[in-house]
Write a protein that binds this DNA or RNA. Structure first.
Length: 242
DNA sequence: CCCTGATTCGC
DNA sequence: GCGAATCAGG
């Protein structure tokens, strides 16, 4: 695999969004985590919150919160003081429903409301996590262990980078940057359009999609005579424009 | 052990 | 430029 502009763009975006190198490598495919890191550095995307802290940083982080902030004894060595911009928290972000209740009434013409869907469970302890389930997909597809085989490129590849700016009405929807191993990556809409997003439901464990979309992605073979023309979910192979 | 990113260095 | 190997912290 080579670093096409497209892939580089994906790398940049995901890297800046706080996705880990492993996640980026997996999303890109065909490259290792190291390759992603190496490329990121070569691109100058250097140094995000790294688990590895230098001794300088460690001391700074240690003394800073404790000591009075006014002290500010300028260290002889310019410690970068890495500012943790924003709050990445890439992994744990299930479904932030800070719905913009105010008015943004322009687009989303046929958007049925979902706000009555508000989460209940006022004090429900979210203790139960996926207990190594082995499920059988709805389409009758054969369940495979996650490591056994790469999932086939089922629907339109989520490769196509989402424009960084998504219409605010869909800001709470699952964007490329929200993708992780626990949520359904089934694309909805078309890349490049403002309402393009991903399903975002909880995945069928071991699969990149939720149970419902696994049923779309993995379909048991039918006898040929019973088979109809394939649905071509996204218009078939991408056309090259220009 | 697992994970993470950083760095090196042969290609 | 690339990325495996290696390093080093969590």
């Amino acid at each position: 695999m080579s670093w096409t502009d497209e892939r580089i763009d994906t790398l940049k975006t995901m890297w800046e969004a706080g996705q880990t190198a492993s996640q980026i490598a997996e999303a890109l495919g065909g490259v290792s985590r190291n390759a992603v890191i190496g490329k990121a550095h070569r691109l100058g995307l250097q140094s995000r919150p790294s688990p590895v802290t230098t001794k300088e940083e460690a001391r700074a982080a240690e003394s800073a919160p404790a000591a009075a902030p006014v002290a500010a004894a300028p260290a002889p060595k310019p410690s970068p003081a890495p500012v943790r911009t924003a709050a990445p928290a890439p992994a744990a972000r299930p479904a932030p429903p800070p719905f913009a209740t105010d008015s943004t009434p322009e687009a989303a013409p046929a958007a049925s409301e979902v706000d009555d869907e508000a989460e209940e469970a006022p004090s429900a302890p979210p203790v139960k996590r996926e207990p190594v389930l082995r499920s059988v997909g709805p389409g009758g597809f054969v369940r495979q262990a996650p490591g056994e085989q790469q999932p086939p490129i089922a629907p339109a590849p989520p490769r196509r980078l989402v424009p960084a700016r998504t219409a605010p009405e869909f800001a709470n929807k699952t964007s490329l940057l929200d993708l992780n191993d626990k949520i359904c990556k089934w694309p909805l809409g078309h890349p490049g359009e403002p309402d393009f997003h991903f399903c975002g439901d909880k995945v069928n464990p071991g699969f990149p999609y939720c149970v419902e979309h696994c049923g779309h992605a993995y379909q048991a073979q039918l006898p040929r005579r019973d088979r109809r023309a394939p649905p071509l979910p996204f218009g078939g192979p991408r056309m090259r424009l220009g």
